[in-house]
């Protein structure tokens, strides 16, 4: 009621209101501007620092001279291989799980609610905890266990490697995939599903012909975003398989691998000569940003394309 009273204001109040209005728009606009400029500054700094080295040679050569020169090919390749392994594990599993959760599990059952809560929680768990899990479970428990059984006395699986790193990362992205795919599936209206069922389609036919095509853009977007998250994360692979320098590219699941993000981290914090490698660091960062942005932007384009197609 008080508010209502103040709304009916005199001309003097009106001037004051206008001032407040301008201030509030100005302050909030300024906040938006600050954030936008942070983004712009980071991107431009990285580009200014990195474009000079951004050459074909840099992308395709191995590091040389104690990492102070040469390219980052093994890191790019390592990132790509790890991301692919991760996607092969997380994307189908996550998609199927999301389909199960949204189409088969009773939506209000305790079971479905528990799982959904666990998935949501897992999606917000710090990535370093996944790293811990990967080290403790995959490397120490599964890997060591396999070694004890198959090759007692030698270390084959019981040490960090690309497989364990990908699996750790896969677990990290699993909830991301589940949540986004489920969200996409939920955009298919209930009525359309009912129509299909009423025509005599089975549940699986409905899923295959109506639900999945209808939410395909959302599913793909979710997958790509999950992959981009996986490609950019470093914490989970810190001790599950990433290596600072490797003379050869990963040739087996038991090899370690180089990773763009990890490369940036070690170069900027642990290399012998930080100053000397700063241009390389910038360019590596640029490549990583480029990679994740490409994934993100392709997700956006894909989404809008598929939307248009449906119209």
């Amino acid at each position: 009621m008080e508010q209502a009273a103040t709304f009916i204001s005199t001309s003097k109040g009106s001037a004051k209101r206008k001032l407040y209005g301008n201030i509030s728009v100005g302050v909030s606009g300024f906040a938006a501007l600050v954030i936008v400029s942070i983004v712009v500054v980071i991107i431009t700094t990285v580009i200014i620092g990195g474009y000079k080295n951004f050459t074909w040679e840099f992308l395709t050569q191995d590091p040389t001279e104690g990492m102070t020169a040469g390219g980052i090919f093994p890191a790019i390749l390592g990132t790509v291989i790890m991301t692919m392994l991760m996607s092969v594990m997380a994307v189908p599993l996550g998609t199927v799980t999301a389909i199960y959760l949204s189409e088969y599990a009773k939506p209000d059952s305790k079971f479905a609610r528990t799982i959904r809560f666990a998935v949501n929680t897992l999606a917000s768990i710090p990535s370093i905890v996944f790293g811990l899990f990967g080290l403790g479970f995959f490397v120490q428990f599964v890997g060591k266990g396999m070694d004890d059984v198959f090759t007692p006395g030698t270390l084959v699986w019981g040490q960090p490697n690309i497989l364990w790193a990908s699996m750790t990362m896969g677990l990290l992205t699993l909830p991301v995939v589940i949540v986004s795919v489920e969200e996409a599936i939920r955009t298919v209206p209930r009525e359309v599903r009912d129509a299909s069922l009423a025509l005599g389609a089975t549940r699986l036919q409905t899923i295959r012909k109506i639900v999945i095509p209808g939410s395909l853009s959302g599913i793909l977007t979710g997958m790509i975003l999950a992959i981009s998250r996986g490609a950019g994360e470093v914490a989970p692979i810190l001790f599950t398989g990433a290596a600072f320098f490797l003379p050869q590219i990963p040739h087996a699941l038991t090899s370690q691998f180089m990773h763009l993000g990890y490369h940036i981290y070690v170069l900027s914090t642990q290399s012998a000569n930080v100053d000397k490698t700063i241009p390389l660091q910038y360019t590596t960062t640029m490549v990583l940003l480029l990679l994740t942005f490409t994934l993100n932007i392709s997700a956006v384009i894909l989404r809008s394309r598929l939307r248009n197609k449906l119209k």
Binding site: V39, I42, A231, G232, E233, V234, I264, T292
Partner: peptide, 8 residues
């Protein structure tokens, strides 16, 4: 900004 890897 959300798509920036934290290492960046």
């Amino acid at each position: 900004l959300a798509g920036f890897p934290s290492v960046v």
